[in-house]
Design a protein around this nucleic acid. Sequence first.
DNA 1: ATGGCAGGGCACCCCTGA
Length: 256
Amino acid sequence: MRFATWNVNSLKVRLPQVLEWLAANPDLTALGLQETKQEDVNFPQAEIEAAGFHVAFAGQKTYNGVAIISREPLADVQINLPNFDDPQKRLIAATISGVRFISAYIPNGQALDSEKYPYKLAWLEALHAYIADELTRHPQLILAGDYNIAPEDRDVHDITKWEGGVLVSPPEREAFQGLIGLGLTDAFRQFEHPEKSFSWWDYRGFSFKKNAGLRIDHLLITAPLVARLTASDIDREPRKVERPSDHTPVWAAFSS
DNA sequence: ATGGCAGGGCACCCCTGA
């Protein structure tokens, strides 16, 4: 079993890249997408199913939007946080081969003095309560997505450029640690990786070439999955192509 | 200190992202 997360920054633009990446990763069980930026009526369900996948999606015009593409059937699909009234489509969950797999697009927050920042913190608080509840039913759970949080300074290319802003602020990092406190583990950090391993690079200023990035896309997993975790890594290849997303896929693999 | 790149909506500029 292998699960991945990828913020595609418009599925309309990136669908060919997504299908290509899935074809190049035939052992991948399921992929969580964020920022599909498509209303459900425009979602490319037929193309994805024609390629041999199951899919569930929840989108809106212009912003946000999440989906799960899977080689195995999807059961018990949940759209959005059940405990948080939110017009923005930022979460979708499904059970796949006995694993509760969640694709989440946690709010960015924009700036510490923006009204979007308390929205981000409230969203994270509701996520915490939702995950706590899900854990009572799903011992095998993966919370995958674009967290818009760099958990530690080593997840930031240059902390002096980012401190005092969103993605690294103490309340966000505390919310991330709160999820860890529920018994979840950051799959990526279970293994040795090069310093400056990132999942996002700004389109501007040759950031990818300079590896001026952030690690903000994560898979948090429960203890029964940690016991079966065989590898977790970031695939930088999709960030190298023409017209890439600014994020690249992150994945975790498990023995069966 | 600022803006830089990209996508989308919608209108030829603005909003958002991180």
